[in-house]
Amino acid sequence: MGIIKQAFMLPLQGTAVAGRWDSLFLFMLWLAAIMFVLVVGSMLAFVWKYRHKASDRTTYITGSHVLEAIWIIVPTVMLLGIFVWGYSVYRGMTQAPRDAVEIRVLGKQWVWSFQYDNGRTSIGEIYVPVHRPTKLIMTSEDVLHSFFIPNFRVKQDVVPGMYSSVWFKPTVIGTHQVFCAEYCGTSHSGMLAKIHVLSEADWEDWNEGKSPKAFGDSLVEQGRKLHETKGCVTCHTADGTAKLGPSHKGLFGSKVELEDGTFVIADENYIRGKIENPRGSTKRGFTQMMPTFQGLVTETEMNALIAYVKSLAH
């Protein structure tokens, strides 16, 4: 086990999932090595043993159903086993806990920038707490990017015009490398970032700060102000009373019934969609009259607005 592991020099295990990932990977590596020796080993053995000699006689064999059945069934069973194991590890990568710290990630050629709940932003460096799940809600301003943290064994493409997300629960305090893994132009290989995993105390410090006011408004507060200045309040209240449009209270995460009787979950992409393309997904019982805000809301403002709507969920 150890030799192969060292030969492959896997990156540090920065999350619990990384440990599970490594076990699966090493298991598969051993299996692959055995299969390789089986196939190439018997090939080489045959080449040696049955090398041409003048007095040779070959055996007239055209096949064997038994062998064929074996090498259909055995691999199929093994592959299904690998699939199940792979899927179970993958589930652990995709199902973010509800209490995850949320950080918004914006990719643009060729920098990563980050927006936190407390209103802080950072560029090229992201700060996350240790032993707490963190969920990144990501979008791009221009082309595709991909947020890749080798030490955490996670990666997710970042797509313009929609949100994608990735989550992790770091276990190792310190600095880890972030790459952009989707080709994005000239400085694709320079689109790096550092992820700083902070101890609980450092996270408190970083998050709360010595004086929170120094960071300006929290993200939710920024969103509340935008909600007013952009005119959302004209139709959407925050207290549960419906005006021209449904109230934003309790909206986030709820099941919304649309005009055609179908249901959607009001997540980040739904709210973004309503702001940019209000037509087509109107809540049942309301008349569609909302104008589009496409181009009128920047990506950072969008993050603040969504954070505000989300804060009204409970």
Partner: peptide, 14 residues
């Protein structure tokens, strides 16, 4: 087969 395995692919793709 490594790349076909979901979790492995997340880290290995690209």
């Amino acid at each position: 087969i490594f790349l076909a395995t979901l979790a492995i692919d997340v880290h290995m793709t690209d």
